[in-house]
Write a protein that binds this DNA or RNA. Structure first.
Lengths: 208, 208
DNA sequence: CAAATTATTGACCATTTGGTCAGGATCAGG
DNA sequence: CCTGATCCTGACCAAATGGTCAATAATTTG
């Protein structure tokens, strides 16, 4: 019954990994349609038929990538917990997401490409797993608001704003860099900016 | 010497327009590589050779689109002026950009696709025209900060945040809708959220 | 070390795609 | 209503691309 572990020979494991790494680079830079199996093969240092020996089709590579990256991508949101200072929790989430944009820009762009073009191969997850996760965390945030521990905001859009503001630095990196010029560190500056922003947004204001 | 106006016959004008409209729909939904001339032709109700009669190549269609849309896209930022209440100016800019995301999502996605994939065909504009415009408006904002009329923030990243937060609702619309479910109006909610956000971010806080 | 399994490849194929072209249809202007 | 210019199309082409396959090389295993 345990087929999975037995099946993965050493060489198989390595090559699958190499292919997925190469495919991530290519897909994230060119989108699904804009990437050829030949490109992936070359980037992986393998022949095209050899790539197709490990994955049935281009689609299969893409699917495997998305599936494998989902957990990495949703991890930070899962870590948003009830314990601790609410503001600090949310700030930490934003910070963590920004780090992900800095350290995994290809992953960010892969998802962005996908969603941007209709997310056909992703929709079930968006409306299912992701939606439930967001619902859960939104309830948590709503609780904090009700307790008066953070200022009043729409929890859903608060989460959207964190996604938008952090992923922007990965997805639109070339634009950000082009506008800022070479003498800036976008991510370092963004960290400060986002801290400021969410602090001001979330700190309850006893306006008399 | 006046070739441009003389050259555009009525039929030419109409068909060029039809093609660009169809191309916008297709490119924004599938990216450059993911769109075929046949698709554009069909969407335009013309034959493929006929499309290529009006535009030299697929590239040419794409370029014409980008060039034609740039002004629309940068218009709101150009309107950011020194006169009036600074906070209101910035809020109005954010609102205007959000309306653009709602009313011109295809245009937003076209640019997003482009930037996301390296912006090869756009880089000169990003580092040139856009950069200068941003520099100018950043200086304006910096002035407001120096006068104490809005709270201290990095002007560049303030602008980035407006782009990110507003375009997110167009570029990631399927995700936003999937997460929110059918009983929400993302744009109406976003408007309220963004107003709140920028009001709190920009209102000077005389913390004693 | 031999058999069996796994890995790899060159050659090949069908389809798609960007683009061309010669000729026919249509239209504007005299 | 004729003529030249503009508009349009079917047929076609070369290149690129996703994918197959038979044959060979490398590796594992008994």
């Amino acid at each position: 019954m345990q087929e999975q572990p037995r099946r993965q020979s050493r060489i198989q494991k390595r090559n699958r990994e190499v292919i997925l790494t190469a495919a991530l680079r290519e897909f994230s830079a060119g989108g699904f349609a804009g990437t050829t199996i030949d490109q992936i093969a070359e980037a992986a240092g393998l022949s095209k038929p050899n790539v197709l020996y490990y994955f049935q089709s281009k689609e299969a590579i893409h699917s495997a990538l998305l599936r494998g990256l989902l957990d990495l991508w949703l991890g930070p949101l899962r870590d948003l917990q009830a314990e601790g200072d609410p503001r600090e929790q949310i700030l930490a989430y934003a910070r963590r997401k920004l780090e992900m944009s800095r350290d995994y820009p290809q992953e960010s762009r892969l998802f962005a490409n996908e969603v941007l073009q209709g997310a056909d191969r992703l929709q079930p997850i968006l409306g299912g797993e992701l939606r439930e996760l967001v619902e859960e965390k939104s309830a948590l945030i709503a609780g904090w608001i009700a307790e008066g521990r953070i200022a009043e905001v729409d929890p859903h859009h608060l989460l959207f704003s964190i996604w938008a503001l952090t992923q922007h630095y990965a997805d639109f990196e070339v634009q950000v860099r082009a506008v800022l010029g070479p003498d800036h560190d976008p991510f370092a500056e963004a960290q400060i900016f986002l801290d400021q922003l969410y602090l001001r947004l979330l700190t309850p204001q006893p306006r008399e």
